Amino acid sequence: MKAIFQMEMIKNAQDKGLYFWTFLLPIIFTVLFISIFTAGTEGADKEYVIISIVPGYTVMFVFFIMISMGFSFIEDRDKGMVARLASTPLSPYAYLFGKWLPYVVIVFIQMIVLLAFGKIVYNFPIEQPLLLGMLALILTFCITGLGLALSLFIRTSNMGVAITQVITLGGALLGGLWMPMEAMPALFQKVGKLTPQYWAHNAFQEAMTGTLTYTDFLIASLILLVFGAVGFIIAFFAYPSFLRRAKH
């Protein structure tokens, strides 16, 4: 497992495109939309927009890591790596954890960088930093768990990109990352509460303003952990089928 983890970390560290999608593009979008929506506003109104956009775009963009995860598993499958590893004493669980852990590191660093950028540039409050950090770690587990399931389910890279876009952009729209939930139709508000993006975004905002109660923190954390755990369960059951599709 350690060798797989190290190999995956080296491969991702050499991927210049990953730096763009993970850090540069989210920062560009954050700056652009804050500039647009805070034009002509000052004080509390401006801070409200910033506290909505920074965590909103952070939550949205971290879901795109599922594309990189899918590409990595497909590459292993099609180049015969999976089949070769299956013939060794390495257990499927060790392989999956070795592939999964690097993306945990990447996503967590991505969230820390994006939130730190927002704090440095816009000086928004972070009243509950411990809860915010715990939420970032829990959301990391949620996203990478779902990404693991998606990676073993998809047949092609294009399929992975399409499904990720539906999950990411659909969740961003319904989860209130683009506009306040109150401004959306009642049906959308109900459906939006079924998305991990909704719970993550709300909890992030409240931790930043210092209004996140321990009850709400536990509820949001439990929901995100359930999403991640379901992803892991699906991945473990999908692995035999993934292995059968692997080239020898």
Rank of each mutant, 00 (worst) to 15 (best):
L169D: 01
Y214C: 01
V121T: 12
V107F: 02
G176D: 14
L18I: 05
E75R: 09
T209R: 12
Q128A: 06
M179H: 05
Y103I: 09
L187V: 13
Q14N: 04
A86M: 10
A94R: 12
F232C: 14
V54T: 10
L135W: 11
P196E: 06
A235V: 13
F63E: 01
P185N: 12
S72M: 10
M134D: 05
I53N: 03
M184H: 02
A44P: 02
G170F: 13
I36W: 05
F232H: 09
T140G: 12
G228V: 08
V31I: 06
G171D: 15
E206R: 14
P89V: 11
V49R: 07
I167Y: 08
M66K: 09
S35L: 03
F124H: 02
G170R: 00
T168S: 07
D45R: 09
F37G: 00
H248A: 06
A220F: 01
Q189Y: 03
T213P: 10
N202E: 12
V226M: 04
I65P: 07
K99Y: 07
G118V: 08
T30P: 05
K46I: 12
I163Y: 10
A238I: 01
F63H: 09
M184P: 00
R155L: 10
Y48L: 10
A162Q: 11
M179T: 15
G118C: 11
S241R: 14
L187M: 04
I53E: 05
A83L: 04
C142P: 05
A116S: 11
P129W: 14
K247R: 15
D45T: 14
I50D: 03
A94H: 06
F37P: 13
T140Q: 08
T164Y: 05
V121H: 02
V62K: 00
G118L: 02
T164M: 04
A94F: 14
G210R: 09
Y103W: 07
G160S: 03
N158C: 08
A44R: 04
Y95W: 13
M159V: 04
M1A: 13
D78C: 01
P240H: 12
V49F: 08
L152C: 07
F242L: 03
G228S: 02
V104T: 05
T38R: 02
V121D: 12
R244K: 14
E8V: 09
I154Q: 01
P125A: 11
M134T: 13
V62T: 11
A162T: 11
P26D: 13
T140R: 09
G228P: 03
T88Q: 09
T88L: 05
L131Q: 09
G43A: 15
G210F: 10
A203G: 02
I138T: 07
L90K: 04
F71Y: 10
E8S: 15
S151C: 10
L150R: 11
Y103L: 06
F124G: 04
V107N: 01
K11V: 06
G43H: 11
A238F: 09
V105K: 02
I109W: 02
P102S: 13
G56D: 04
L101W: 06
K99T: 03
P180T: 02
L212E: 00
I50K: 06
F108G: 00
G228R: 01
R245N: 00
F37K: 04
G118A: 11
Y198G: 03
